[in-house]
Design a protein around this nucleic acid. Structure first.
Lengths: 207, 207
DNA sequence: ATTATTGTTGAATAAAATTTCAATCAATAA
DNA sequence: TTATTGATTGAAATTTTATTCAACAATAAT
């Protein structure tokens, strides 16, 4: 008989996680097509053969990572929207947290890069494309809704909400890509620079 | 003897341009590694064999495109810095022109995406890496200098200049990537949203 | 110990992509 | 005409990469 079933499952899961995390690093720094199966197995310290024991193809690994990336991002957006905070604080909070995350967690920046690459690429698996089609717009919608609310409350600048949401995520993604590229020389960005795009200047209210 | 030398050279140049333009489109939408030689030759309506008559490898095409991308971007930055305008107008002008370019010229967005992909990628030719190392920072430096000038003149917000420059290009690149991805459904962005990151509010001056 | 089961390897095989090349074509100067 | 040159093709050879598989290892229940 095999070794203990549960322990076994746990070990298997850990191994899968190890492979996924390695692959994420490689995909983010090279892209799907340029990452060879042997690159992943070498970096994960296993044989190519074993990789096929856990995943049936490179593409499957990629799709799994895309799923995780969107799950995390969209879950965070859902959470943000549900918080009992005024909309301007939500935006400020989101900007601070997103920038902190980029700074502290290299994988976070890599996930952004992975999504950006994949969204832009014609050469990714159909399944990944479907995920993007389904999930890509949600974060834009959430930010646009919060901005609209804030505009009604007079705390957020009255630029077009959809355009503002686009600028919001473009700036974040642009920074994430810079971060992923310049791991070493990355200088943390003052979140207030980004806040000033969206939030009404307090001074104005005080007039 | 061969046909007319000059005409010949001209035709050859045109063919090279045709190949380069086709390859740019493909590289930007798939990345270097995922673009096959046959993809390029098919899209350019020539045989694979002929492609090797004009370029010795896929990588050579890629490097040539990278050179062009940086030449164009850096030349534009040089030009901008040399203009006889106050710094805040330079920033506003740059934002308006960059966004207009993105809207009007799909290749412009593709060049940005190509640079972003390449800067992020470990799997590009060494020569391309050298180009990036040499040329990547110049646009950041120019914008940082203009911002510093504007801060001294009191027309640009007093955020850290390097961080502001980083946000400037991150936002532009983020928008370019969005544009490259959503060719069809792209909504033009109001440049004033971006301007508000950097430029002092006129109202403040009027107090 | 024996056996069943799953993990693991790396070489063998298959598939895919790149590169070369012999042959043909088209243009034109002599 | 025709000889020469460079353009062009597509199939063959090469190289690279992905995938399979036979063999072996480790484990734990019997």
């Amino acid at each position: 008989m095999p070794k203990n079933k549960e322990l076994n499952e746990k070990l298997k899961d850990e191994r899968r996680e190890q492979i996924l995390s390695t692959a994420l690093m490689l995909f983010a720094s090279r892209g799907l097509a340029a990452t060879r199966i042997t690159d992943i197995s070498k970096a994960a310290n296993i044989s190519q053969g074993l990789l096929y024991h856990y995943f049936s193809s490179k593409e499957e690994i990629f799709v799994k990572l895309m799923e995780t990336a969107f799950e995390k991002l969209n879950e965070a957006c859902r959470w943000l929207e549900a918080q009992p905070m005024p909309p301007d604080e939500k935006i400020r909070f989101a900007i601070y947290e997103l920038l902190k995350l980029l700074e502290e967690n290299p994988n976070a920046a890599r996930y952004h890069l992975l999504i950006a690459q994949s969204a832009a690429s014609d050469s990714i698996p159909d399944e990944a494309k479907d995920i993007i089609r389904r999930e890509y717009t949600y974060p834009y919608e959430v930010i646009a809704r919060i901005i609209t609310e804030g505009q009604e409350a007079g705390t957020i600048k009255k630029h077009d909400a959809n355009q503002s949401a686009l600028v919001f995520w473009s700036a974040i993604k642009g920074l994430a890509i810079y971060r992923a590229v310049h791991q070493d020389t990355f200088i943390a960005t003052n979140p207030e620079i980004l806040c000033s795009i969206f939030l009404e200047d307090i001074k104005k209210d005080m007039l």
